[in-house]
Amino acid sequence: MAEDVVLMKGNEAIAHAAVRTGVDAYFGYPITPQSEVLETLAELKPWETSGMVVLQAESEVAAINMVYGGAATGKKVMTSSSSPGVSLKQEGISYIAGAELPAVIVNVMRGGPGLGTIQPSQADYFQSTKGGGHGDYRLIVLAPSSVQEMADFVDLAFELAFKYRNPALILSDGVIGQMMEKVVLPEQRKRLTDEEVIARCPWAANGKPKTREPNIITSLELDSAIMEQRNIHLQAKYKEISEKEVRFEEIACEDAEYLIVAFGSCARIAQKAIELAREEGIKVGILRPITLWPFPSKEIERLSHHMKGILTVELNAGQMVEDVRLSVNNGVKVEYFGRMGGIVPAPDEVVTALKEKLMK
């Protein structure tokens, strides 16, 4: 079968991938710069072809609680938003994590704090990788750096979400969401039947016959001893995820003397920056975290032994740099360079920062 190659925005790729990979329902609310996800789904009208539910809720809070309900039935459900909208969803995300339900959240980041700007940002790193809401929980966080990965990560996020019964977050930014590239869309798959959903998710609240005890989905437990055991179980699960699901990409690290750590759109900028740096004889490589949680700490620590210095490049005030510093324990200098307010740095700015922060 010929590949279905099309030119589209990252946000549009998310929507097309959701329909093609058999997602059962999307509940969302418009906010720039991710509104094209909902708009594209409305144009595609998948409820007429596959039966997929697409609903614009009355608010972000309503949307995430609809996701909570849908996920409790074992269905593939998702939502999308941008930074302040995801902040509003945090209570519901914590409930979903506490109830151990699979769901996918897409965050196309914009600048803040507050309403901020509609321009791109990566300042939701803390909100995404440190739990965001209340309680000791974790999200599986995937950071795409291309339109192709925006499409591919929908399927991967659901795969990981169901494998570990844990919400997964696709953490993009306004650059990747709005840029247009060629993308190979996934093949069309059918949604699972109710019987297939029950077989895949025996834990789900799926309307079992009265002859059997129904499954109860909740994150509430009034007995502190039982609640502690639940938390111990969750921490063991997170440990397993951190050991098995780390993903990253290395670029030109074989002979590198300096390392740039960057994700999302900044990884693309850094890739051009290392070309410029190598033209000047500066040997630089890139470590691109694909999973921001679990974070590739061990790989960064391994690479640090061969480096004279490490620079993180971020569209924020310096957030991921904290995790990079925690990963390095051999005295190698770790510095940060970034822009804020929706300003995207040019590759030559990255090269200048590398020289000034690590080579003087």
Rank of each mutant, 00 (worst) to 15 (best):
A353E: 05
C266Y: 03
L287P: 05
P46D: 05
A317Y: 00
K89E: 15
E249G: 00
E39C: 11
M359N: 06
E254Q: 15
G28P: 05
A103W: 09
D194V: 12
A317L: 01
N316S: 15
V350P: 12
G285S: 03
L156N: 01
E195H: 10
G342Q: 04
R288T: 09
P33G: 13
E275D: 14
V313C: 05
A353H: 06
S94M: 03
E221C: 13
R191V: 01
R138W: 07
S87D: 05
Y125E: 00
G177H: 12
P202L: 12
A225N: 11
A199E: 15
V175I: 15
P102K: 14
P202D: 12
I105Q: 10
P144M: 00
I105G: 09
C201V: 13
A143N: 13
L139W: 01
A205N: 15
R20C: 00
E3P: 01
A157Y: 05
E91C: 01
Y95D: 07
R110H: 04
A267I: 01
P186D: 12
P347G: 10
A346E: 15
L358T: 07
V61Q: 15
Q90G: 01
A346G: 01
V324A: 00
R138C: 12
L276H: 00
V328Q: 05
K355R: 14
Y238Q: 05
